Amino acid sequence: MKNVKYYMLLIIIMIIWGLNVPVLKILVDSLSPVTMTAFRILIAGLTVFIILSYLKLVRLPTKKEWMFILFASLFNVVLHHFFLTIGLKGTNSTNAGLILGSGPILTALIATFLIGRKISVWKWIGFVLGCIGVSLTILIGSKGVSGVSLGNILVFLSILTQAFSFVLISKAARTIDPRLLTGYMLVIGSSILIIIGFILEPNGLSTFVKAPTEVWLYFLSSAILATAVGHMTYNFIIGKIGPAEASVFLNLPPFITLIGSAMMLGETITSLHIVGLFFIVTGVLLGSGALEEIRKR
C-alpha cells in the first residue's frame, strides 16, 4: 500500500501522455510542425530547469556526461521529435499512439543486443507479438488498410530512435540525476531543432501569431504538463518503485490515445486497431520483462 500514491501519479501521467498524441496532431495541423516542436520542447526544458533550481539539483555535467548528453539529445529529442512531427502530418493520432506504444519492446530488444542482457523465451514471444501489432498498425491507413503509410513509418522511426537513446540515458544516469539529464537534453535538442526549423520553415513563427487561443492552450499544456512535468515525474517514480513496476503502466497510453483520438478528432477506430493494440500491449508486458520481474519479486 505504500506505493499507492506513486501508482496514482503514474495513472495521471499515462492519461496525460495518451491525450498528448491527439493534441500533437492538432498542433502539427495548426502550426509549422518543426518550429512548433522546437519551441514546445524549449519551454519544457526551461520549465525543468526552473523546477530543478528550486530543488537545488542543477550542476554542470562532467566531460564524460556531456558526451552522453549530446548523443542522447540527438536521438531522444532531435531525431525522435523530428520524425514524430513529420510523421503525424501523414497519419492519424490513433495509428501514431499505437506505434508509440511499442517503445518498451524496442527498448528491451535494443538493450539485449547492445548491452548483452539475457533474454528469455517469454521475452522473445513478447517481441514477436509486439512486432505483429506494430506491423498491423503501420499497414492501416486513414481509411483502412491502404498499403504502408509513410507517416506510420516515420512515427515508427521516431520511437525506434527514442528506444536507442534510452540505452545511452541508462548509462549517463549512473552519475547524473535523470531529471537534470532530461533538462539538458530538452534544451540542447530544442536548440538544434530551432535551427532546423528556421531552415525548413522560414515563416514558421508567423503561424503562431495567427493561432487561436485554443491552439496556444494545447501548445502550453503539451510543453509543460506532458513533456516537462510528465517526464520528470516518471523518472522520479522509477527511482522509487523500480522500472519493472513503472513500465507496466506504459500499456495505458495507447488505450487513452484511442479514446482521445475518437473524442477529440473524430477518428474512426477499426477492428484492426483493436487487434494491433492487443498484440502491442501483450508484447510490452512480456517483452519488457515487467511481468517476469514482478513475478520474481
Results as ranks from 00 to 15, higher is better:
M1Y: 14
N3I: 11
N3K: 12
I12P: 00
I13E: 02
G18Y: 10
L19Y: 02
V21P: 06
V21R: 07
I26D: 10
L27H: 10
V28F: 11
V28E: 11
V28K: 12
L31Q: 03
P33A: 07
V34K: 06
T35F: 12
M36R: 05
T47C: 10
T47S: 13
T47M: 09
K56A: 10
L60H: 13
T62G: 15
T62K: 15
T62S: 14
K63G: 11
M67L: 14
F68W: 14
F68N: 04
F68S: 05
I69T: 14
F75N: 05
F75S: 04
F75P: 03
V77L: 11
L79H: 03
H81A: 02
F83M: 07
T85D: 11
I86W: 10
I86F: 09
G87N: 05
S93I: 08
T94S: 14
N95G: 11
L98S: 00
S102L: 02
T107K: 07
T107S: 12
T107I: 06
I110S: 07
L114C: 06
G116C: 02
G116E: 02
I119S: 15
I119L: 13
S120C: 12
K123H: 13
G126K: 07
G130A: 07
C131W: 12
C131V: 12
S135W: 08
L136T: 01
L139C: 13
G144M: 11
L150Y: 07
L150C: 04
G151L: 02
N152M: 09
F156D: 01
L157V: 09
S158Q: 09
L160F: 15
Q162Y: 15
S165V: 03
F166G: 02
L168M: 09
A173F: 00
R174N: 13
T175Q: 10
T175W: 11
I176N: 04
P178E: 06
R179Q: 12
G183P: 08
I188A: 04
G189W: 10
S191M: 14
I192H: 09
L193F: 09
L193G: 05
I194F: 02
G197T: 05
G197N: 08
I199D: 07
P202C: 11
G204T: 01
G204I: 01
L205K: 01
L205S: 01
T207V: 02
T207Y: 11
A211H: 00
V215D: 04
W216Y: 15
F219P: 05
S222C: 12
I224P: 01
L225N: 00
L225I: 11
A226D: 00
G230M: 03
H231S: 04
N235F: 15
F236P: 05
F236Q: 13
I238K: 03
K240E: 14
G242D: 02
P243E: 03
A244S: 15
S247H: 02
N251D: 09
P253F: 10
F255L: 15
F255A: 13
L258N: 04
G260N: 04
G260Y: 04
S261W: 09
M263P: 00
L265N: 11
L265V: 05
L265S: 10
L265R: 14
T268E: 14
T270Q: 08
T270W: 13
L272Q: 12
L272G: 03
I274V: 15
I274P: 03
V275Q: 00
G276Q: 06
F278G: 04
F279A: 06
I280Y: 05
T282I: 12
T282G: 14
L286N: 02
L286H: 01
S288E: 04
S288N: 08
S288C: 03
A290W: 09
E293S: 15
R297W: 07
